[in-house]
Nucleic acid binder design. Structure first.
Length: 648
DNA sequence: GTGGATGAG
DNA sequence: CGCTCATCCAC
């Protein structure tokens, strides 16, 4: 009964085929190359280091793999390796309790800063010095960085998309790489027909061999003895890649990790947690429902907090299968339209969130809870020195000295009893960031907070810097020539970062919906020639376009150009295109080399548009106290109905 | 831009 | 638990 496909299929034209074809079209295959969030063949992986902090210590200390070890922070444990778990040791135990369970276990305290130190260190007596030391997680951040680099090194530079999701986890969008492997392995896919809506041939039956050694898991138990289709092949190719990545991390750095490979981020994440340690789990598309229905939905990302609790309370079930019974109207009614439909889709295995190419942090924080509380500005000030030392050393690692990156703001959080106060201010541009500057700013913030009065005793203090910007590019115009000679030259050279030239873009881009990423390089080989540069001169809202780089005989013409500063790029421009053949217009910031390019982009645009009526990745914050509870549902919020899409 | 809150690991 | 990090929202 539940044979409803998880995906929308493009409508076959009238030509029903008697021979067996794939469920997927050439167009969908092409979308795979772009990692389109709506492509039903998309392949996403999540990789998670096993008991990461504990592994770091195992590696650092060169211990044998079966040695029980836990990482200690003051009196409690924050990570426990798998051998230690066999003794019943778990997080949230005290060191003392753990010791009792396994006297032989190593309980390694984390590194700490102590007042006056210029560097964190592993101190023997750290746990006895909670009042004077501050924890440092730097050793783990450094290892994390190595591991990330190793993983990236395993993936083709031009086809990789890696998102650092935490100190010990990453998402990989393997779609583009899988696409390229598919074309390589199956030449029959490489020559698309005129009509991209045609269905692909089925994969050769030899693909069953792929499965032999891949850790496939969770089939829906024999729904149909379906032949494998290209989504199965794609995901298994993804699994091969993940296996390689994991092997490299293991061999080069001695870390084990677990992986999940699936159609989207949510499923891949559930997959990686499904079997640990040192294993990987594939969730094929046809196994999604079976896989999900066993879960408590509070295990799903974003449902682990208040929102999840609210849902449990409202619908009196905590399982996915229970919640599947709730009609979408009721979800929307109780949770709001956006959150309601997000939940509806999520528990059905639908998740259109993108893997953002992002491996760098956006903020940096150094914090300390005080037990007992501190009571004077002098005390607070001394901790600020330590925070500054910590943050500054991390800034150095981030390349702040070489002007690669630089934070824009500094922020001080202060907790007094239940309530928390914070103040932030800009970090003055133009000056080199050093400890003195940072401490100066932090002190000013502290002064501001204390001025409010009634702030003592203080139970928690934290200093953070945020708003990282890529180096000097921002202030080059003014600051650049204030530097002289060598400095300026060095600055300019540092501005060029081959590392992530292309992958930086999606960051600000993410607001640009419709997944209108550049399609250049797929149909046309040329790497993006930045057309927006050419338009730089015209500030006009709408300008006429003279000659434009199109084939003369094309039916596509660029009609006018729109300056679009809000798109996140300075000088970004949108061009409006018109296709005579289709009698339609389409706006994009891409430029197209051919009719096909245009159609391709338009298809993508339309499809994303159509499918993104419901998806919004991010649920609204849950119950929140700000909820004006007396008021009735003003849910009659104008949803942008489909009325807008009037073509075809 | 600022300050608070939520959520994740 | 305690310490990080990210994101969203109201103002």
């Amino acid at each position: 009964m539940s044979s409803s496909q998880p995906f929308e299929q493009s409508s076959p034209t009238a030509g029903g085929d008697a021979t067996k074809r794939s469920k997927f079209t050439y167009r969908q295959l092409a979308h795979l190359a772009l990692s389109s969030v709506t492509c039903p063949l998309r392949v996403i992986a999540h990789i998670d280091l096993d008991a990461f902090y504990a592994q770091c210590e195992m590696v650092r200390l060169g211990l044998p793999e079966d040695k029980p070890l836990a990482v200690q922070q003051w009196q409690s444990l924050i990570a426990v390796n798998y051998p230690a778990r066999t003794f019943g040791i778990s997080r949230m135990l005290t060191a003392k309790e753990a010791r009792k369970l396994c006297p032989d276990a190593i309980l390694q305290h984390v590194a700490t800063w102590k007042e006056g130190d210029v560097k964190w260190a592993y101190h023997k007596d750290a746990s006895a010095n909670m009042a004077t030391h501050k924890v440092s997680l730097d050793p783990y951040r450094l290892e994390s960085r190595k591991i990330l680099a190793c993983m990236k090194g395993c993936l083709p530079p031009d086809l990789q998309r890696v998102e650092k999701a935490g100190i010990d986890e990453v998402f990989l969008d393997l779609s583009a790489q899988v696409h390229s492997i598919l074309l390589e392995h199956y030449p029959e896919l490489s020559s698309p027909p005129k009509d991209l809506s045609e269905f692909l041939p089925l994969p050769p039956t030899t693909v069953l061999d792929w499965k032999a050694d891949a850790l496939v898991d969770l089939d829906v138990s024999e729904t149909e003895d379906d032949d494998p289709d290209w989504d199965d092949v794609a995901i298994l190719l993804g699994s091969e890649i993940v296996r390689d990545v994991r092997a490299a991390v293991r061999e080069q750095l001695k870390y084990t990790c677990s992986g999940g490979i699936a159609h989207n981020k949510m499923l891949s994440k559930l997959g990686s947690a499904h079997r640990k340690p040192n294993q990987q789990t594939v969730i094929r598309n046809r196994a999604i429902q079976q896989f999900l229905s066993d879960f408590k939905f509070t295990k799903i990302r974003n449902l682990g907090g208040k929102l999840g609790t609210q849902i449990v309370d409202t619908f009196e079930t905590d399982t996915v299968s229970g919640l599947l019974e709730v009609p979408i109207e009721r979800l929307k009614q109780k949770l709001g339209d956006e959150t309601g439909s997000w939940v509806y889709q999520t528990i059905r295995g639908i998740d259109q969130s993108e893997v953002n190419s992002r491996t760098q942090i956006k903020s940096m924080l150094s914090a300390k809870s005080f037990r007992p509380s501190i009571n004077t500005r002098e005390q607070a000030s001394r901790w600020l020195r330590i925070f500054v030392g910590d943050i500054y050393s991390r800034l150095v690692e981030e390349g702040v000295l070489e002007n690669k990156r630089r934070p824009k703001t500094i922020n001080l959080h202060f907790r007094h009893g239940g309530q928390t106060k914070s103040r932030q201010m800009p970090i003055p541009l133009g000056k080199t960031i050093d400890e003195t500057i940072l401490f100066d700013l932090a002190s000013k913030l502290l002064g501001q907070i204390i001025l409010e009065g009634n702030v003592w005793p203080c139970a928690n203090l934290s200093l953070s810097v945020a708003g990282f910007e890529d180096g000097i590019t921002g202030n080059m115009g003014i600051g650049g020539f204030l530097l002289k000679g060598d400095e300026a030259k060095a600055a300019r050279e540092n501005d060029y970062r081959p590392e992530n030239g292309a992958s930086d873009r999606p960051e600000k881009r993410q607001q640009t919906e419709h997944g209108a990423r550049s399609i250049q390089g797929f149909f046309s080989k040329q790497p993006g020639t930045d057309e927006s540069e050419k338009l730089e001169g015209s500030h006009g809202e709408i300008g006429e376009i003279g000659d434009w780089p199109f084939d003369e005989e094309d039916n596509i013409t660029a009609t006018h150009q729109i300056h679009a500063p809000q798109s996140g790029f300075k000088n970004a421009s949108i061009t409006s295109y018109f296709c005579k053949q289709c009698n339609e217009t389409f706006e994009s910031d891409n430029s197209f080399q051919s009719h096909n390019d245009w159609h391709f982009a338009k298809d993508l645009h339309d499809e994303d548009r159509r499918l993104s009526h419901t998806p919004q990745p991010r649920p609204k914050p849950g119950p929140g106290k700000k909820k004006n509870k007396g008021s009735k549902k003003d849910a009659a919020k104008s949803e942008k109905g489909q009325s807008k899409l009037s073509f075809g």
